[in-house]
Nucleic acid binder design. Structure first.
Lengths: 367, 367
DNA sequence: TTGTAAGCGTTATCAG
DNA sequence: CTGATAACGCTTACAA
């Protein structure tokens, strides 16, 4: 077989993908409904007919099995298996006004930390029988508003955000939904409904504290201009002032697209007349970029320049000398959020609505 | 303000989150439906009454404006704005058997490449009026099956997977859905329906070719045991044989959890009696781990050991000497997939169903 | 414990 | 171009 890298001639190799034959999974669904010739899905009526009960009994058997006598329950179960029936969530939602879908909106799917949180949240919610789906808002108010408006129609069981909602109109819209709303990743005084978060402002203070303890006296900030970046900057700024450190520069960017943004920030930071002894990067991607650029320029970290990050990026630990970074347990955030949503959904009367997570410091070697 | 890092005493700093007052966004929804005292959402009937038309006319005005006369269209539009009406997707889906939701299932949200593809796909589909939501299957057949079964009931407009479906029962189930199914990230001979993919087997051949051209003669493989990992290994294995290279070892892992897995693989690879001159890592996270471990062990890359990756990871370029990596344009994959789904959904008669992407090589310095 | 009747909000169908 | 009617599949409310 020839390998041709620039083949416009369709000389290529198919993937012989493994095919795994039938497992013990329930019978496939295509089901010839009695009478109707279509191969459509079975409906609750079909199951009821097969089990010789009323449709409503099927409904009950599926949602509150204990309300149905054991023999009917068994017949129904058999009929369900035979037909491959599963509830039509649209019909269910239309009638009951509820659905088993929990929606999450992430401002950025490419964030390692968000992904981690969403993954653990998925696990918790799906184990409880919910379908957990994720949409993207891309740090755009417009998309966020669109998402929230569509929510209003879709009536999910609950909604979660990787962040807090800033637009007052959107907060209002969400309140009107009458479902549990979970905000995360910050610690506002007035969450819409539920919250699993931490103080970004405090993170900034902690950053200042760490740098101060390590003996740095002149520092600069690198981070996003808006949102949580601004909060961390505020804390850092206040912390520096309180501790008598000089905040030489603030290198703000609108959007983090990759490590190269960090490189640029470092270049900007050291090109200033007064060069800082250390940098607080409110985002590990930026911090990594700074570390890489520092190495390229033969600036020794931490000897010539301390670098402190935020976010506990996986690889941050791996780049010598190891990025010291502030962060939270993202997986735990997701898990907690999931658990709190579940208990709220199951109608627990005084389920906690707020959970503050502690920040922690992973001391590696970069400051 | 005090900073206390180990505070169990709730001494912490709230985030003063920015609040942005009302924009020109449409009036919030809570709407007192005439007659009923509830503050519930407006329904199509409410809009119809206000506009003095029949409900069906509202429905048409919203979906095919050109079917309704301009004056009624205007009255309806006004009524919609006044009531904050939006279509109830459940009722709509129930009746029509269609919805505007496109579902994607990712085996792993933490993959940089998947995220990139999903992001561009989101953009394309949302611009076309679809709601694009992502679920996770976590490389688990069980979760995948559950997801697919729930699909059957939910009737999304289309479904997409970051991968191809291996279980025959699931393929059958998906075929029965009667909606566009998009598989990606591989090049099977018999996709279920639509496909935007590339040949993983070919990627392995290319890897062998690259290493051979660079003069390596004894090599080892590092990668996932199953799925696409196995395909890349197959191509690499065959390529090595064809080119007369010796494939010394295969270091297979079940699941990539982070860079440390790569470290372990490198350690295993070099501890063999016959040490390979180069490594092909079928995954950039593993490749990065290998590079980092190599540096730690003072193994010079590429002089002592060549390392070739797959996936075009962002940071791969940044770690000296720069990881040479094979890959595709993930953003383009997502965009293409989105576009093809849209044209299929809009009923284009012979819209292409298959698209093969070319592999490309980012030559940096690690081989 | 089980069943009957009604309707959730929308759209397909067909008639005007 | 517009409207009346019925039905999608399910669950609430009530009755037996």
């Amino acid at each position: 077989m020839e390998i041709e890298r620039e083949d416009d001639k369709a000389t290529f190799v198919y993937d012989e993908v493994v095919r795994i034959a039938g497992t013990g999974a329930p019978k496939p669904v295509p089901f010839d409904v009695e009478g109707k010739g279509q191969p459509g899905r079975a409906s609750i009526g079909d199951v009821a007919r097969l089990a010789e009960v009323a449709p409503i009994t099927v409904s009950r058997a599926l949602r509150n099995p204990e309300m149905v006598s054991p023999d009917k329950r068994l017949r129904i179960q058999r009929a369900v298996e035979e037909t491959g029936y599963s509830v039509n969530p649209h019909a269910s939602a239309l009638k009951s006004g509820r659905s088993n879908i929990v929606l999450a909106f992430a401002s950025n799917l490419m964030s390692e930390q968000f992904s981690l949180a969403l993954r653990s949240c998925t696990a918790v919610l799906e184990d409880a029988g919910y379908l957990f789906l994720v949409g993207q808002t891309s740090y755009s108010y417009e998309r966020e508003t669109a998402a929230i408006r569509s929510l209003h129609a879709m009536k999910p069981a609950a909604v979660m955000f990787t962040g807090v909602i800033e637009l007052e109109t959107n907060r209002e819209l969400l309140r009107g939904l009458g479902i549990p709303i979970m905000e995360t990743w910050a610690l506002p005084r007035d969450p819409i409904d539920m919250l699993v978060g931490f103080s970004n402002t405090e993170a900034g203070w902690i950053a200042a504290d760490i740098l101060h303890r390590k003996g740095y006296r002149t520092v600069s900030y690198v981070g996003r201009r808006g949102g949580r970046g601004a909060l961390r900057l505020k804390g850092f700024h206040d912390g520096c002032r309180a501790l008598g450190m000089t905040l030489l520069g603030e290198h703000l960017i609108d959007d983090v697209n990759g490590v190269s943004d960090g490189r640029r920030c470092l270049a900007a930071a050291i090109s200033q007349a007064a060069r800082p002894e250390a940098l607080f990067c409110s985002n590990d991607v930026l911090a990594l970029g700074c570390m890489m650029e520092a190495r390229r320029l033969n600036i020794r970290v931490p000897n010539d320049l301390g670098i402190l990050g935020f976010g506990e990026s996986d690889i941050a630990a791996e780049i010598p000398p190891g990025l010291t970074t502030i962060g939270i347990d993202s997986a735990m955030l997701g898990r907690k959020a999931g658990e709190m949503l579940i208990s709220s959904l199951s109608g627990a009367p005084f389920a906690g609505k707020l959970k503050r997570l502690d920040l922690r410091v992973s001391d590696r070697g970069s400051v």
